[in-house]
Design a protein around this nucleic acid. Sequence first.
DNA 1: AAGTGGTCTAGACCACGTG
DNA 2: ACGTGGTCTAGACCACTTC
Lengths: 279, 279
Amino acid sequence: MAKSEAPSPTLASSKASFSFDAPTPGPHPLDRESPLPLWSQLQTELTRRLKAEEFAEGFPTEQELTVVYDVSRSTVREALRRLNELGLIQGRRGQGRTVRASPQPFRTGALFNLITISEGMGLPARSDVRAFEIRTDAAVALRLALGADAPLVYLERIRLAAGEPLAIDRAWLPASLAAGLLEVDFSDALLYEELAARCGIRPDAGKEYIRAIDPDAESRGVLELPDGTGAFQIERLTLSDSIPVEWRSTIVRGDRFELLAEWSMTSGMKLSGQVPSNT
Amino acid sequence: MAKSEAPSPTLASSKASFSFDAPTPGPHPLDRESPLPLWSQLQTELTRRLKAEEFAEGFPTEQELTVVYDVSRSTVREALRRLNELGLIQGRRGQGRTVRASPQPFRTGALFNLITISEGMGLPARSDVRAFEIRTDAAVALRLALGADAPLVYLERIRLAAGEPLAIDRAWLPASLAAGLLEVDFSDALLYEELAARCGIRPDAGKEYIRAIDPDAESRGVLELPDGTGAFQIERLTLSDSIPVEWRSTIVRGDRFELLAEWSMTSGMKLSGQVPSNT
DNA sequence: AAGTGGTCTAGACCACGTG
DNA sequence: ACGTGGTCTAGACCACTTC
């Protein structure tokens, strides 16, 4: 059922439109010349279509996907397995896969709470890009377990929320892994999404140091932070497959952000960020 | 290399010992008649051998496992994938798989990390008791879900670490529950321990708001906090059996304390406090 | 009976780390 | 150069659900 008698062109039917790059609806072809694995491309592609709500009338079967994207069933399953782990879809033997209502506010192991705190906070992810280039930095390279003069992709952004500065965000990534990011416009993109889509890197572990500081005059100016107000400094080492992929240092306005830790015997601990609820 | 020229019988070599059921060392055969998938049996089998520390000298390669257990590489990989997800082994392209040191000393739900942060921090819990009495406080009573003029046990302490001030700690508890505490000398006692011992109250849930502030002059004086340094404000509502038992407000020196959050796909999140590891 | 996902096989080539 | 894990293919049979 629900076979694609669709008006939109499928990939299998013809090669008529092979150079489409615009955000057209329907399936986009995979790039067999890309260094990214096919399953990774397929995962990104299906995530895109999920967000575009193209599967409102049911998720495709494995068989359909092998035909539409012209890959083997194993490749399809590898991509679907990851989507399942991320809580985006759900499958059952005999009755196909379904799109999950909400991306699970709280998945099994993979909670990205801390990662997403300074990455969006649920607010529009507008940013002011102050620097985006290749640099070297001996101190950062050390933390990334690289040589002192290793080239690094450096991205410095002012994160805005409701039009007002919320944080200064500085990120360094090994250029050997992340050079593919350089063409992205990060005034309106999420770093970890682009990292997955363009570099095939998906953070799976990390360490975060959270401190309370009194920011220097320059930071105060950039953040428009009033006197008598403090700030968080959050430094983060991000790993993927046990390999360091990012060092990040973020300064967050203390009057616009707080951490909320909830704990209970039964459900364990949950940490989240939010705008201050009182005082 | 490391082929098993072992004294223990391998499966591939012969069918000589087919009715072994005892906990013998070495590989046990899989049961092809079992309703359990082969990969599941293999996962169980490898977990058993891991616990028996049979892989102290290196984890077998995929190729070896296909031979020893007589299954396809896909089946082996399915089992290894799960062991990896559970954090028992770790693999990298080109250099084989290794047994992971410890499956993460990470208990399921009941970590009291945050609670113990200002309660001890691993340092001697010396305190300077500045006030300890019955009071009323309308704002605090509201948070404890009590009437505005309900009597509260109020305890204010300067927490010392290595003889230097670390934090100002103010705690309010309903006098109806905690009056039994009044005879304790809290210069050298832990609040939650006394609460359990004398009042039979054991916190089992809580909520903590963590903010970065610029402390006022009085707090700076008490904490001996240098200029140009920030501080944490940590407010906590503690529950026992869903009943509020404590409201606490703590101001912690930013130069002597940091939060460390560690996150991984396999083990979830862990939050702890420590003295800063770097600037 | 037909279609789905779950399991399994026997190959193949490649990227990476080490000798 | 070699062995490792990573990816990919083209099949196959089975268990389960729905019709």
